[in-house]
C-alpha cells in the first residue's frame, strides 16, 4: 500500500459507498444473472468508460491484490492504462499484465484466453446491462418481463434474424440464460467468449451509468440462446495468429498497408506475448523476435 495517495480513501470510494456496492454484489451472487440496482456514484472518469467496473473493482479490492486491466483484450490500450493507473494511485495495489498472476482482472469486451481459476475475480465493464433494452426501451416494462420470465420478445428477435439472414445476426453481447432463469447481457464480448463464462473464477458485472450490478458465481450454468435447428456458433476468424500461430484465440484484423493487406493477431496481448516468448511463431512474425 506504500504507493497509495493518502488524499483519498483506500480505493477512492468512501466506506459507506463501498458497503452499498458490496451488499449489491452479494445479492447479485445470490441471484445469478439478475441485475441488482445500486446507487452508482460519479467517478473521476466518464460514464461509459468503465465507471461500473471501477466501482465494483474498488469494492472487492484488497491491498494485496495484483490488478490487471484489459480493454479489447489488450493491457496497453489507453483506457486500460488509465484505469490501471487510477488504482495504482488510489489503492496502491500491484499491477500486472500476466493473466495467471492477476487476482482481480477488470475487462472491457473480452474474456482472457488463459483459463481463469479459483482465487481470481473477473470484473466486467457493462454499458447497457439490460439484454432486452433494444427490444423494449422502457425500464418499467423490461423489469416486468424479467419478473414474469417473459422472454418471448428475445426469441422472436433471434428468430427474425434467422428468417432474414439465415443466421442469428448478433456477433457480440450475445444474450445468455443463467441457471435456466434470467436472460443476461454478457457485456459486449464477442460471442466467441460466451462459452468461457462457465468458469472457476467469480464474475462480477458493473454498469455505472445504468446503476446495475450483476454476477455469476463460479461454475454457474450459462447458456447462449439458440434454436435446435440453429445452434449457437461461437465462431471466430478462420485463421491462426500471424504473430504467435495460435489457432484457438480470438483475433483482431489489422490493415497493414495502403493496398488493404491485412494480418490477424491475437486480441489478448498477454496470451500472444507469452506464446511468442515461449518460441511460438506465426506466419508474419519477425524471425529475430524474442
Amino acid at each position: 500500500m506504500d504507493g497509495q495517495d493518502q488524499a483519498y480513501n483506500f480505493a477512492y470510494l468512501d466506506e459507506q459507498t463501498k458497503r452499498m456496492i458490496r451488499r449489491a454484489i452479494l445479492k447479485g451472487l445470490a441471484v445469478p444473472g439478475y441485475q441488482v440496482p445500486f446507487a452508482s456514484r460519479e467517478m473521476p472518469m466518464p460514464y461509459g468508460w468503465g465507471t461500473g467496473g471501477v466501482q465494483v473493482s474498488a469494492a472487492v479490492m484488497v491491498p494485496e491484490d495484483r490488478f490487471k486491466v484489459i480493454d479489447q483484450g489488450a493491457d496497453d490500450t489507453t483506457n486500460a492504462v488509465s484505469i490501471r493507473k487510477f488504482f495504482e494511485k488510489t489503492a496502491g495495489v500491484a499491477v500486472t499484465e500476466r493473466t495467471g498472476e492477476a487476482t482481480v482482472i477488470q475487462t472491457r469486451h473480452r474474456i482472457p484466453e488463459e483459463e481463469l481459476g479459483e482465487g481470481q475475480v473477473l470484473v466486467y465493464q457493462v454499458p447497457i446491462p439490460e439484454p432486452l433494452r433494444f427490444l423494449e426501451p422502457s425500464e418499467v416494462e423490461t423489469r416486468k418481463m424479467h419478473a414474469l420470465e417473459e422472454y418471448g420478445l428475445m426469441h422472436v428477435k433471434l428468430y427474425e434474424d434467422i428468417a432474414r439472414h439465415g443466421a442469428i445476426s448478433t456477433a457480440y453481447a450475445y444474450p445468455v440464460k443463467v441457471e435456466g432463469r434470467y436472460v443476461m447481457d454478457p457485456s459486449p464480448i464477442p460471442k466467441f467468449d460466451n462459452p468461457k463464462m462457465e468458469m472457476a473464477a467469480v464474475q462480477l458485472f458493473g454498469a455505472g451509468r445504468e446503476q446495475r450490478i450483476y454476477a455469476l458465481p463460479p461454475y454457474t450454468k450459462v447458456v447462449s440462446l439458440d434454436f435446435e435447428d440453429h445452434p449457437f456458433d461461437p465462431s471466430k476468424a478462420d485463421h491462426p495468429c500471424d504473430l504467435c500461430g495460435a489457432e484457438d484465440s480470438y483475433l483482431d484484423e489489422v490493415i497493414v498497408d495502403d493496398a488493404g493487406g491485412r494480418m490477424f493477431v491475437c486480441s489478448d496481448t498477454d496470451y500472444c506475448g507469452t506464446r511468442q516468448a515461449n518460441g511460438h511463431r506465426g506466419a508474419l512474425a519477425a524471425e529475430d523476435a524474442a
Binding site: 461509459g48 483506457n79 469486451h109 473480452r110 456477433a171 460471442k191
Partner: peptide
C-alpha cells in the same frame, strides 16, 4: 456525455465480430 463520448474508445473486438459475421452471412 459519458456514454455518447465512449464510442471514441476502441471497439475493434466488437467490430471484428460483426465483420466476421457479415462476411459469413
Amino acid at each position: 456525455t459519458g456514454f455518447l463520448e465512449h464510442i471514441k474508445l476502441p471497439h475493434y473486438v466488437d467490430f471484428q465480430s460483426e465483420l466476421e459475421l457479415i462476411r459469413k452471412l
